[in-house]
Simulated scan of single mutants.
Amino acid sequence: MEGDYTRRKMNSWTLLFAIFFYFRCGQCDIILTDDHELNLKLNEVSKFSINASSFLSNISNTEIQLIVQHSDIIRLDPTILNITEGIHDINVTALGAGHSEVYANASDPAFQKHVKDLFLIVTVYKQDWLIPFSVVIGWIYFVAWSISFYPQIYINWKRKSVVGLNFDFIILNIVGFTLYGIFNLGLFFIPEIQNEYSDRHPRGMNPVKVNDIVFAVHAAIATLITIVQCFIYEREEQRVSTTARTILGIFGGFLTISIILAGVKVIHWLDYLYYCSYVKLTITLIKYIPQAYMNYKRKSTVGWSIGNIFLDFTGGALSMLQMIVDAYNYDDWVSIFGDPTKFGLGLFSVVFDIFFIVQHYILYRHSNYAEN
């Protein structure tokens, strides 16, 4: 009996030790001591550090190899590490402007899980002063776009009339900014969607920033104020056109089906947010057309704020300038020519703004439509 008791006691201790060792080993990851991002100037030499757990020596004598995505952008020294306890310093030399990832492979496949979080995104730039310059440009166009709604609100209030303001443009705007807000809020605040994004882009950073949320919510509120003005001020026979209603009906049907599919888990909620963003991009492409056509029919821009256009033009032009500055500084022209969506939308908006300016100051500058 005493021998059985002793064996049972030893077996219990063995089981507890095995469980303890299992969970401690599950925490034996090799990690960076700093952030997963490193910014360097061209030809600069810096370093990052790797922290190896004290339990690693009990598991394996495995080596890890650091893999550089673009060897023409950065060079590492050393690139092969023996797994030993403590801090390991890695020197980084910036060879060329651009973005490059560093990740790790273990010589023992069973050890790969311990280096899954060992990655670094290195950005190499050409000129120091272009970084704050780009930031300043970004804030200027953010402010310009944010306040671009108020000249129209003011002119509506001053005239006590919305005659000349196209209702299709307004309704497309509120739908577009609402969808943009849904995309930003979902990706920024909902953990389930954030986890899905991380699964798809393991080394990617959340693309939504606080200023994106502020702009989207503010734009939707300002557009809503304009819609309220359309109900309380003189509007003659203006209304939302059948064409705009049809387009919005198609968008609504598409998004309704998408949200049902997301609800029954046929698609992910992240996919639904992407669909919202695609609809928003489409709206941005077409929303200026009704107002331009209305000005042409009336041979007048009375009731349509030119201040809104100048601010929108400023925001769009500076947005493209920032993209060009960043593309030069980081030698990342692919961001413009390889994926032209953002740049193309900015250019499209600027072209329409120029067209509106021509209508206002050249084609219809002598118009007295309001008096008629």
Rank of each mutant, 00 (worst) to 15 (best):
T282Q: 10
Y278S: 14
Q69P: 05
I362S: 11
Y293P: 02
N58K: 08
I30P: 01
K113Y: 14
G316Y: 08
S148K: 14
V45S: 10
V350A: 13
F343G: 07
G338Y: 04
F251R: 02
I140Y: 00
I283D: 04
F189T: 05
D326W: 00
F251P: 01
F177T: 05
I140T: 03
P109A: 07
W157I: 01
G315A: 13
A97E: 09
Q291S: 11
V214D: 07
S134W: 03
A327T: 12
F17R: 15
Q112A: 10
F313I: 08
I225T: 13
K342I: 15
D326I: 02
W269M: 15
L255N: 09
G316Q: 07
Y5C: 01
S100E: 05
D168H: 04
K265N: 15
K209C: 01
K297N: 15
D117K: 15
L95T: 01
V68W: 03
F352M: 14
W157T: 04
K41M: 06
I260A: 08
L120C: 00
N184I: 02
Y22P: 00
D212F: 03
I131Y: 00
S198K: 05
I131P: 02
L130V: 09
I257W: 12
T79K: 07
L185P: 03
S241T: 14
P191H: 07
I336H: 10
G344N: 10
I190D: 04
G249L: 04
I121G: 00
T123Y: 14
I80Q: 08
V135W: 15
Q359D: 05
N58H: 08
A18W: 06
I257A: 12
V208W: 09
L363M: 11
H99N: 03
L120M: 02
G344V: 10
M294P: 12
F167Q: 01
